[in-house]
Design a protein around this nucleic acid. Structure first.
Lengths: 246, 246
DNA sequence: GTCTATACCCCGATAGAC
DNA sequence: GTCTATCGGGGTATAGAC
């Protein structure tokens, strides 16, 4: 009995994976807006109605693809950070840059899945709550780098303007209460700017503009690390002009 | 004869505009990937085949919308800069921030046109050369701000790493030969990061994260100005620690 | 320049047999 | 869980009359 159910479940898992794989190919060819259950079924040698046993609707298939994509890029970031300390576990800018580069590398290797999660929203589709956990993984990795740096030697950033103070405190208490609000604000900014760089490269805005994209990205990621307050050498205290003025 | 042709041409221009207006509404409802000549025609009380007298194909209509969108956001940036010097024509960070805010305001007011030009590429569509001029307008405005600041008092930025020097010089000679390469590199970075901020806000990544988006954006835009080397007071010379270290 | 008609495709979703 | 058949839509693009 259990073996029978085991076999059935195994088959179900395999078919589900095959459907998602084929759907990812469709994504590349036609885009998320035109992802169609019928075309997937056709390519798989099934009939469209059979797919409804695996995904109750087109949007559910889309959700599965989105969750998978967030998990994949999140895992890439986590792995990159875990494997980063080759040179120096306390070289926080290097760990930051390695993580950013891993995210970019994943994006370059999976441009259509990247577009699915960081590009224009799919019209008529609204993401369910299932996606919010996976969607936060990259951000959490970036936060953890800043946290390590802050624990090791503190991060000094210039004080925030009055207009931002309330928002900064709300933000801080929600996502990283152990970090200074200025650092949290800088992190959220760097997080969005990181994807701005990747999106411009991937979506063609750098065509005929930036050629050596590896070098450009590495430089920009390093500047982002700096903006977040990561420094190579532990800053002893709060020196004006170093962390603050710039 | 000329009046007849004039009338015909006027009518043609009006119908063309009506088609584009309706197409923009479709864009909002269904997205660029599903923009359909038939639906536009239906809404306009025409029959689909009539539209082919105005746009030879769906992609030509799409191109017209893309060019219009780039021109609109470019004009918004240019106007904002032209009207910026209310407080102080030499307050370059303020002029920068005003320009960035205008771009963001246009994006918030026209989210679907924004997604058309800065979101995921439309599958199966490749932009013709007609779009590259309009697409560069915002970037040119940002460059002109840096140029003004550089002419007024010079911009000091830290030297570039060796790996980026070749690319930086190529880039500089192509888009702004009168500016220091480090500034040009920073400008390209800030340009892409600006749209990263706007895209994250517009595409929903800030949902449940950033609430006071006006304040957050103003702060981030100010940091970008700083990254480009714009300072409130003319930097007399090249002071270490001020422009460079940070 | 607009019309009808047409050729030839696509889709999501469900009912009911097996 | 897969099938056929079906409902009720949708689309691009062209031909040829007016």
């Amino acid at each position: 009995m259990t073996t029978i159910r085991g076999a059935r479940e195994r088959a179900r898992i395999e078919v589900t994976a095959a459907i998602k794989d084929e759907a990812r190919k469709q994504l590349a060819a036609e885009g998320a807006a035109k992802l169609s259950l019928r075309a997937v079924a056709r390519q798989l040698g099934m009939v469209s109605s059979a797919l409804y046993r695996y995904f109750p609707s087109r949007d559910d298939l889309l959700t599965a693809l989105i969750v998978d994509a967030y998990d994949a890029v999140g895992a890439a970031a986590e792995t990159a950070l875990a494997n980063a300390p080759d040179p120096d576990p306390d070289d926080h800018p290097a760990r930051w840059t390695a993580t950013c580069s891993a995210v970019r590398a994943w994006a370059l290797a999976h441009p259509h899945e990247y577009a699915l999660i960081y590009g224009s929203p799919v019209p008529g589709y609204t993401a369910p709550m299932d996606t919010v956990g996976p969607a936060s993984r990259v951000g959490l990795v970036l936060i953890s780098i800043a946290r390590d740096a802050h624990r090791a030697s503190g991060i000094a950033l210039p004080p925030l303007a009055d207009e931002l103070r309330a928002e900064a405190h709300r933000l801080t208490s929600e996502i990283a209460p152990d970090l200074p609000p200025a650092v949290v604000v800088a992190l959220v900014g760097a997080w969005s700017q990181l994807f701005g760089l990747i999106s411009f490269e991937l979506f063609g805005q750098f065509n005929r503009i930036v050629e050596d994209r590896d070098a450009f990205f590495a430089h920009a990621a390093g500047r982002l690390a700096h903006e977040v307050g990561l420094r190579r050498r532990p800053a002893a205290g709060t020196q004006r002009g170093s962390g603050a003025e710039s």
